[in-house]
Write a protein that binds this DNA or RNA. Sequence first.
DNA 1: GGGCGGATTACCT
DNA 2: GGTAATCCGCCCA
Length: 209
Amino acid sequence: MHTIAYQKLTSDFYDRPDVLTIARELLGKIIVTSFNGELTAARIVETEAYAGITDKASHAYGGRRTARTEIMYREAGTAYVYLCYGIHQLFNIVTDKTDIPHAILIRGAEPITGIPVMLRRTGKKVADFTLTRGPGNVSKALGITLAHTGESLLGDDCYVASDGFVPAAGDIIATPRIGVDYAGADALLPYRFIIRNNKYVSGKVVKSA
DNA sequence: GGGCGGATTACCT
DNA sequence: GGTAATCCGCCCA
């Protein structure tokens, strides 16, 4: 059990127009899952924003609506989980109002609670920095699967909370997103947000700005 | 109905 | 650095 009070984020947090601001503000927040009575929690250290129908990197680019992307048009605070490379389940958070398909990919987190459960879920022997680094690993450790796509993050099974911690502005770095080369010029947009020098951030180490 | 490729990861040399 | 794993979604026919 944690002793710090967690304040669950409400619809007001997710239902705002600027997905970049929300992606930045998610840094330092805590993802909590409670599946089958197993509590796990991890602090977000890396996010990526996918900005609606004009973002070539987004599944919803051009206003595309399919069975999969339909989730992105749901209300703010909905989980969007999809399968990548046939193996990895990537956890996103839908933001802003219905009909504007903004989403934020959670790419890295720092384990807080339920590390033994995370180890079992991931099949890892030791809790090193690979446990929850990278979007596939985050979902795996927290037990988030395709079955959770479309679920609300305003309930009690899976949500994001604050314990009051806010990273210093100087510790937040914006960079281009990972693995979206297919998006042309949009691949260069600084839509990825990381906490500086955190070992649970994926990819190469970014130089201090 | 068929073919292609991906918002990744781990393990290989 | 290179690549296998692995399969659903998406697009075209």
